[in-house]
Nucleic acid binder design. Structure first.
Lengths: 210, 210
DNA sequence: GATACTAGTGAACGCGCGTTCACTCAACTC
DNA sequence: GAGTTGAGTGAACGCGCGTTCACTAGTATC
């Protein structure tokens, strides 16, 4: 275009790149990332198709950039939560509420991870699986510091961590698929998540004596 | 074609219809059902694209037929298992092994359900979600007849049923994604599934006293 | 054995796709 | 302020897509 540019060329390029990513994320909410075409994303971001190549080599590369960004968001939230001693104290009740809050706040990010884990192109799927594994390991590190767990085997702790992540994942899915206009469902999901977590922890507490 | 037909026109038509469904199921293992084209499926089934319309109005309709067939398989297996008293007796250990066996035997069917639940076209997704809900309700009916559970509220039983289905679903996913040439992983998955189920049941047993 | 039926054929269509390339012109460098 | 750089343009390409339609030939009906 012959329009003047607002803040320097580097900044503008970064803005366009982010516009492409945000547009793809938004569109993927409706139809799944693998169904998006390069042309659709470019046009919705206000670009001509060939301009796409100034920012990504392919849709796959854009997908990987999205995975990275989404898990960055997730990891930041978890690390912030870990710093709050009250959260560790009441880990069950807290995690249910945090989860629902977090998912609501970054709905598109969570939806992307939830949906594309099994679906996206092979590289996208693999990247997500890898990030989720990292996530389980991180949670295991937190859990192992809790009283009564220090003595467990690494394998057992990993198993419980996996169970927790799986449940968080499933509940995140519920929130993601929750209709916009039904905030009453939210309370139910929180309650459900809370009870399920408690259920796991109860089994968990009786694990050694079984 | 000018080739003679083997067993009557009706039978032959049914065979072709099933060939289309099987081909689509198989191809969807590699790239996801939503990524399949009518032409690909037709060609792989040995048909010209326009012949597809003699059997289905669209790929969506084929997808719905597949959902129905897959859950039919699933439901039959569950009903058979329920008739075996030994299975009810040792429901935890049995269900872990049954699950892995069943998934291995009907890998494509399970893979389809697991993958397309979040991904397929909107009608396919909705159909799968509906069938899974039915499945949870059916399991709740089985559970409520177990000793010590009869007195629970319907809501609680449904919750536990949902937790079970969620775990079966997640473990089915592990088996589906298991590489063909690593049968050693299978034993690990069975063991993991067994322990997780036991974990849930333990929490479950302590539920009332919490 | 003539007649109706229908699963499957093959050519044609218009369309959106990914990719390429020569081009423009504002932002940057010196 | 002349020269370079590079984000974005727009036309063109070949391709696979879903869908249509007139057709062929084996099967079923009477």
């Amino acid at each position: 275009m012959s329009e003047p540019v607002v803040g320097g060329r580097k900044l503008q390029k970064e803005r366009t790149r982010e516009a492409l990513m945000n547009t793809a994320l938004e569109l993927s909410l409706q139809k799944g990332f693998a169904q998006l075409s390069l042309r659709q994303v470019s046009q919705a971001a206000g670009l001509v198709p060939s301009a796409f190549y100034r920012h990504f080599e392919s849709m796959d590369e854009l997908g990987l950039a999205l995975v990275e960004r989404c898990f960055g968001t997730l990891r930041t939230m978890i690390r912030d939560a870990q710093r709050d001693p009250e959260v560790i104290e009441h880990i069950i009740d807290a995690s249910a509420e945090i989860l629902v809050e977090a998912v609501k706040a970054s709905k598109a990010d969570f939806a992307f991870v939830v949906r594309e884990r099994l679906t996206g192109s092979e590289p996208v799927r693999e990247a997500i699986r890898h990030e989720l594994d990292l996530f389980v390991s991180e949670l295991a590190v937190v859990l192992v510091r809790l009283p009564n767990i220090e003595s467990w085997t690494t394998e057992d702790v990993q198993m419980v961590a996996r169970l927790f992540v799986r449940n968080m994942h499933a509940n995140a899915e519920l929130v993601v698929e929750m209709p916009e206009d039904r905030p009453d469902l939210e309370a139910k999901i929180v309650e459900l998540a809370r009870r399920e977590m408690r259920l796991i922890v109860l089994g968990f507490a009786n694990w050694r004596s079984s």
